[in-house]
Nucleic acid binder design. Structure first.
Lengths: 330, 330
DNA sequence: CTGAAAGCGCTTACAG
DNA sequence: CTGAAAGCGCTTACAG
C-alpha cells in the first residue's frame, strides 16, 4: 500500500520523472501512459501530498478558525465558505478554538506551519496578540464578524441592525425596555448593536431603558430574565436581547414564570436563527446572512491568495424580521 | 519571512541538525539553546510541517467526513470529537460532503493523500464503493451512525429508541398513528427506528398506523404534514416522526392549520435537539448523546491509530424525554 | 517523448 | 553536546 513514485516507475519500467509527468498531465507517449496507468491501477498508488506540497511550496487549502462549531451562525457560515471554496478547487481546514482566544492565536500559527494559503478568522475579539500573529505569519487573513483597520475585514452592519430594532420596538409604543447585551469586548455584538439601539432611543422622549449584560448561552438568557422578573422594579414591557440565543432564554424564562408573550412581555433577538421561525410566538429578530457571508468571505480570501485587490472593509446588511413576539401598545 | 531551518542554523552559527534537535527537544547545551532561541524569535521562524511529515511519515491529524455541517447532530458530534482529539494532541480535519455520497468517497481518498492517521466517517449510508475506498486507503476508519460488519462501527440503539417511543405513544392511548419516516437507505434512521416502532405496535391490538416517507428537512416535514391533514382519512391522533426536524415541521404545519398540539394532535421526534426544549409545547423525543459519541469516536480512532484493540461494534444508548407534545388519551 | 540529477525543508542515525 | 550526510517522496529544469 505504501507505494512511492519510485515503485511505480520501476514496475512500469520508466523513470520517476516520467511518472510524475504523467500524474501532472505532462506529455507522455500513449504506450508509456498505458503502462503507468495499469501499474497505478494495480497498486492503488496515492501520491504523498506532503512531498508534493514541499516542492510546490503552496497548498490549495484555506483555513478557518471559528470560536465554536456548534452554533447556528458558525455552522451556517462555514458551510457557505466550504461550498464556495470547493467550487474553486480549495479545501477548507476548519479549526475550532472553543471560545478560547489563546487557541485562536495558536491556530493562526498552526495554519501557517501547514502552509495554508489563506485564513478566514471568525473573530469575536481582535486583540494585540491577534494582530501580532497575523503579521508574523504573513499569510492573507480575513476577519469575519469584527473589523480592524490593519486587516481585511467583513462585518455585518450591527449598528444599523440595533438602530432598526430600537426604532421598531419604540414605534410599537414600548417605553419600559430592558436591553440584555453582552460583553463589550465583542465590539460587533456588545457595542455596535447596543449603540444602534441607543441611537434609536435618543430619538424618543420618556423612555426608560435599563441595560443588563449576560453571557451568550441560552441558559444565560434564562438566568438574566429570571433576575429581571424578580426585581422590585416596574416590569419592562419589552426585552431587547443582543442575540437570538438570549432571546430564546428569555422566552423560556417567561414561560417558566407563566408570563405570556407578547401580551405581557415583548421579546426580540438578533441573528435570525432557524429556530426563531418555528417557535410560537415567532421571534421578531434581525436576520444575518451567514451563509452568504461565508460565500463572500471565501471569494475574498481566494482573491487575496491570488494577489488580487479586495476591499479592506466589507459591510453586509441585515434584515429586520417582524414576527409575533412584539406587542403593539399603541 | 520564508525562513528555513538552514537559515536559522546559519544565523545562529550552528548546524541544521542542532536546530532540529532544539526544535524537537533533543539535548542542546544551554548556550546554543539561547542563540537558537534568539534567532527564532527575531526571524519568526515557523517550521514547514510538510517537510516534517514527509520524514516522520505520519501526521497527528484525524479526518472526519460529515454529510453536512449545519445540522445539530453533526456540529455537536464534531465539537465533541474535536475536544477529545485536541486533548490527545491530534488535530481534526473536517470535510463536508454536502450530502453527496460520491463526495464522501472522494474525501476518503483526499484524506489518504494527506496521510491522515485515521478517519471518522459520519455515515448515512454504507455502499460498496465506500467499502472499496476504505479498504484501498488502508487507514483506520470508524463508521459513526451506521454499521457494517467489516468496519469498526459506532451506532445508536435506534431500534430500542423506536420501540420505546412506540410503547410510550401507545401507552397514552393513541390508536390512530401516522409515522413519518425517511428513506430506508439510511438504515439507522429509516429502518431501525421504524422497526423498533413496529415491534411496539405488534404488542397492541386495534392500532391503525399509516406510514409515510419524507425528506430530512423541516420543510419536508411541513409538506408531509400538510398532505396528511388534507387527506380524507380519519385524522391521526399522533404523528410519530423519525427525526426532530420532521417533528418541528409537523408542529409548524399544525400551527399553520390552527391544529392545537397536543390537544388535537400529538407529535414526537427523535434526536433531542436543543430546540425541542425551548418550543411550546416541548417536544417529546429521544435524546441522542451526540457530543459523547464524538468524544468516544475520537478515543476509538486514537486507539486504532496506535494499533490498540477496539470493539468492532459500539452501541450507544438513547434516552426518552417526556415533554408536553403527547396527549394522554386514557 | 524520456531520463538523470538536483533540490524542496526537515529528521535521524552515525561519528566525533 | 554537535555536525556532516543521507534520505523522506515528489517536481522541475536540463539534456538527449
Amino acid at each position: 500500500m505504501k507505494n512511492t513514485i519510485a515503485d511505480i516507475a520501476k514496475k512500469a519500467g520508466v523513470a520517476k520523472s516520467t511518472v510524475s509527468r504523467f500524474l501532472n498531465g505532462g506529455s507522455v507517449s500513449h504506450a508509456t501512459r498505458q503502462k503507468i496507468e495499469l501499474v497505478i491501477q494495480e497498486t492503488g498508488y496515492i501520491p504523498n501530498s506532503f512531498a508534493q506540497s514541499l516542492k510546490a511550496k503552496k497548498t490549495s487549502m484555506i483555513g478557518t478558525i471559528v470560536p465554536r462549531l456548534d452554533s447556528f451562525s458558525a455552522s451556517q457560515t462555514v458551510a457557505g465558505m466550504d461550498e464556495e471554496l470547493r467550487k474553486h478547487g480549495y479545501q477548507l481546514l476548519i479549526i475550532n478554538a472553543s471560545q478560547d482566544l489563546s487557541r485562536e492565536i495558536e491556530a493562526l500559527y498552526d495554519l501557517a506551519r501547514q502552509k495554508i494559503s489563506g485564513i478566514i478568522l471568525f473573530a469575536t475579539q481582535v486583540t494585540e496578540t491577534h494582530l501580532a500573529a497575523i503579521k508574523e505569519i504573513s499569510i492573507p487573513v480575513i476577519l469575519l464578524g469584527q473589523q480592524h483597520k490593519e486587516v481585511h475585514s467583513m462585518i455585518y452592519n450591527d449598528h444599523a441592525a440595533g438602530y432598526d430594532m430600537g426604532r421598531y420596538v419604540l414605534s410599537k409604543g414600548h417605553r419600559h425596555i430592558a436591553y440584555i447585551g453582552v460583553t463589550e469586548k465583542d465590539v460587533a455584538v456588545g457595542v455596535q448593536r447596543k449603540e444602534g439601539f441607543l441611537k434609536a432611543l435618543s430619538e424618543y422622549d420618556g423612555v426608560e431603558a435599563i441595560f443588563y449584560e449576560s453571557g451568550f448561552k441560552m441558559s444565560d438568557g434564562v438566568a438574566e430574565a429570571l433576575a429581571i422578573f424578580e426585581q422590585n422594579r416596574t416590569m419592562p414591557t419589552a426585552v431587547v436581547c443582543a442575540t437570538d440565543n438570549i432571546a430564546l432564554g428569555v422566552m423560556k424564562a417567561a414561560h417558566m414564570r407563566g408570563i405570556h408573550i407578547p401580551n405581557e412581555l415583548s421579546v426580540t433577538g438578533f441573528g435570525g436563527y432557524d429556530v426563531t421561525e418555528v417557535i410560537h410566538p415567532g421571534l421578531t429578530t434581525v436576520k444575518y446572512g451567514y451563509s452568504q457571508a461565508g460565500h463572500l468571505a471565501a471569494q475574498h480570501i481566494i482573491k487575496l491568495v491570488n494577489d488580487e485587490p479586495v476591499d479592506f472593509l466589507t459591510v453586509m446588511n441585515c434584515d429586520m424580521i417582524h414576527r409575533e413576539s412584539v406587542d403593539n401598545l399603541n
